[in-house]
């Protein structure tokens, strides 16, 4: 992800905001920036702002400019020639932070995916007659889980692809 942001920046696109599936760039002069995407355990709207501020000011003091954040993902950049110390210098600690942050946060989505998958399966394994389609409840009952499964499938795949 950092490499991508650095390429964009060199082509004159500066990262401005990041959403769940999107990123917004601003057109500027090409800049030679280094990016660092860090995982902040207590990030996101549900946690005290004070902690995030402490964390960010510490990062800024060490030479990384805060760009934007999405939930626990924190985006920083720095001019390449300043060469600041990376935000994470200990792989074991970094790994722990990522595990402690990502699993609880993404577990809900993964769980939901399997529940819906299970419901969909149980729908299909039951006796399946055209009579079911004669009442509106029957129609809903027949199609709602398979239909729900479609977006859940994509969200699930997206989440799982993200994890490593």
């Amino acid at each position: 992800m950092e490499t991508y942001l650095e390429q964009m920046s060199a082509e004159g696109w500066q990262l401005e905001r990041v959403g769940k599936h999107t990123a917004k760039f601003k057109a500027t002069e090409p800049q030679d920036l280094k990016y660092y995407v860090d995982v902040f355990k207590d990030g996101g709207p549900l946690n005290p702002e004070r902690d995030a501020e402490d964390y960010r000011s510490l990062c800024e003091e060490s030479g990384w400019n805060f760009v934007t954040s999405h939930d626990y993902l924190q985006f920083f950049s720095a001019p390449r020639n300043t060469d600041p110390t990376p935000l994470q210098t200990d792989e074991t600690i970094e790994q722990k932070i990522i595990e402690a942050t990502l699993w609880p946060r993404e577990l809900g989505g993964i769980l939901m995916f399997f529940v819906i998958l299970f419901m969909t399966r149980s729908q299909f394994s039951g006796t399946y007659t055209y009579d079911n389609l004669l009442t509106s409840i029957g129609v809903v009952g027949t199609y709602v889980y398979p239909l729900l499964a479609v977006p859940m499938f994509f969200i699930g795949v997206y989440t799982l692809a993200w994890l490593p």
């Binding site: 860090d38 902040f40 355990k41 402490d54 964390y55 510490l58 990062c59 003091e61 060490s62 990384w64 110390t85 990376p86 935000l87 994470q88 210098t89 200990d90 600690i93 970094e94 722990k96 932070i97």
Partner: peptide, 11 residues
């Protein structure tokens, strides 16, 4: 020995 800001914060 260098300690990065993120590592330091979590420590």
């Amino acid at each position: 020995v260098k300690i990065g800001a993120g590592t330091l914060y979590s420590l």
